[in-house]
Design a protein around this nucleic acid. Sequence first.
DNA 1: GGCACTTCTTAACCAACGTCAATGAACCGG
DNA 2: CCGGTTCATTGACGTTGGTTAAGAAGTGCC
Lengths: 212, 212
Amino acid sequence: MGNSWIASPDAGAVKKPKASSPGDELIFYLSKFITLTPAETKGILDQMQVRTFKKGHILLREGQMVNLSHFILKGCIRQYYIVDGEEKNTHFYTEGEPLTPYQTTHNKQSSKFYLACVEDCILTISTPEQDAKLMAMFPHFDTICLTATEEELGKSHEQLASYIIKTPEDRYLDLLKTRPDLFDRVPLYQLASYLGIKPESLSRIRKRIMSK
Amino acid sequence: MGNSWIASPDAGAVKKPKASSPGDELIFYLSKFITLTPAETKGILDQMQVRTFKKGHILLREGQMVNLSHFILKGCIRQYYIVDGEEKNTHFYTEGEPLTPYQTTHNKQSSKFYLACVEDCILTISTPEQDAKLMAMFPHFDTICLTATEEELGKSHEQLASYIIKTPEDRYLDLLKTRPDLFDRVPLYQLASYLGIKPESLSRIRKRIMSK
DNA sequence: GGCACTTCTTAACCAACGTCAATGAACCGG
DNA sequence: CCGGTTCATTGACGTTGGTTAAGAAGTGCC
């Protein structure tokens, strides 16, 4: 609603050449790990391909072997599996997060999950070839990627631990604290499956908490 | 039992200079990602520090800021949190797996979990400085690490998905299939917490399955 | 406005896990 | 061999989540 970046009414395909602000998000992310020279910053922004996608657009389907990497400049993307005809959400990615299909890229396996836009999205897009080009341009770029990936792995381990250790109610309260924005962007029934429960149970948990 | 590698009776501290077979495990692991030249193989093995640890030895405690990396040549290590005085196991690492304390290393945070030897273990040990030295010796070593870390991240995402999607019974059956060795090495009550349930529930699940 | 669709909530009933307590098997040390 | 410890199992009972069905609130379209 009222998002000035979404100019075109058709789904996707609007190329955004190094516009002023969207690239900043990516540069900010990278500068968490390394200090970029102006030349490097320019090189990255010149390389950068940006596209918009409409709410509901499916970036990746089960069985596909797409291996594009994305970085979210604006919007929200959910990862989900379909089990017995039911969507099970396992991740919500938002602004400033990288999105790499590891299984597909390295093991030449087809994807087991879906990726879909929860809202209108602005994403960078890069092929493995483009990534390799950037690596070649900037010698220490793979060190950045290693650090970033290790950070993601640490987060993933912590999240896994929270599923083993905590109750769904605990996880709901955690999510309220750590990612309150999701409650304005994602319907509750999708967050329910992310918490590992059914929408009816989430309702009961919310009711239970209210009366405390 | 009858493990000829465990020669010394005291906990840890037995340095094993590039002995014949234990290093092979590490070289095999690395060769999954890259073809090593004989010189590289020798360099890695020369750098390699190996120590044995006795069953029950705690490698890392909650609150510590140790940042040693390990690679398991022999044995089994469990990662666990202590919540309300109870141990909650979140990972079991076995032969041929790397063990890096990401949070501690990068974010200078103290560890939230413990690492303990389930059995007598033979591990490589390396400091961040030694890792950096290897990186400097072999230009593409960080690319290997990136690939390995991305693979770990993919696995972690899949495991997280299994907790969101599956029932404890499903996870028990999965574990029987994918890591049957754990049932000979790890007591059931520890596997129970790994499956996200209490030992009593695991008993009931096993009984339920028996009668089918 | 009226209708369809989506999303969230509620209720009743059942299945599964947690809790508490007790039992028994296997193992270890003296 | 005995006594203590660890580990797995079982039963009774309470709590929580799943299932099914229904309804209410909000949204968009004709």
